[in-house]
Amino acid sequence: MFDIIKKIVKYPRLTNNYPDKALDSSLFIGSPEIDTDKCKLCGECVRHCPSGAIKINTVSNSITIDYAQCVFCVLCEEVCRSGAAKMTNKFELATKNKVTLQKGPWVIDENNIPYEPQALDALLQSKIKKTLGRSLYIREVDAGSCNGCDYEINGLNNPFNDLERLGISFVASPRHADMLLVTGTATRNMQLALLKTYAATPDPKLVVAVGACACSGGIFRDSYATNNGIDSLVPVDVYIPGCPPRPQAILYGILKALDKV
């Protein structure tokens, strides 16, 4: 006991005096900044930015960073050929006005083209919906998600939402399922699993993409390990955006796949 007390007394206090005294922030990773003199507008950082925070306007030759979208991943600094993109150690970025988080005018990213789902035969679709409209068994497929969406899907079965009242229930095997509820961005490791699950599901079947990752790749967009959403692998009927979407949003998406809302 005395040893512990001695240690407590001897040990220096690490608590800082931050707002009154400036911190040594030399080891912090803060906001990224672009050196406009060095930048050649090659667009490498735009292509690699996981969250699409960096945009280039080719008309006005301007580049913008949206700190609200930026995840401070240092990838722009790594890929920049001219050394213009630099991570600073500024961390006091909080603001009451979201617009001030954007540097420069907003420009639409050309990589961000919305995906058009494959147009299935309208007759077949209506037949599927007639068959599955009143009774639906769902297999939930985790194609490499962070489990945020999966927790929200769990929420569908709780007393508050109670999916079963609509005649919809979760089953264990894709062979028993009518709908695949896919979360995650279909990573390279889960790509084969997703394709096999899709093949194992008996026709007629529906696929619903849950969350930003499954819709477009989300935060992991254009990574070497992901597929930018599941629609590059399997035909998707309904996209449910959100990170994660709340259970009610998922329920709305499931019913939208059946044309019941």
Binding site: R134, P159, D162, E164, R165, L166, G167
Partner: peptide, 14 residues
């Protein structure tokens, strides 16, 4: 019953 024990409503559409 499962709905009752989980304090849910259970199927009530058809």
């Amino acid at each position: 019953f499962s709905a009752f024990y989980a304090m849910r409503r259970g199927p009530n559409r058809l």
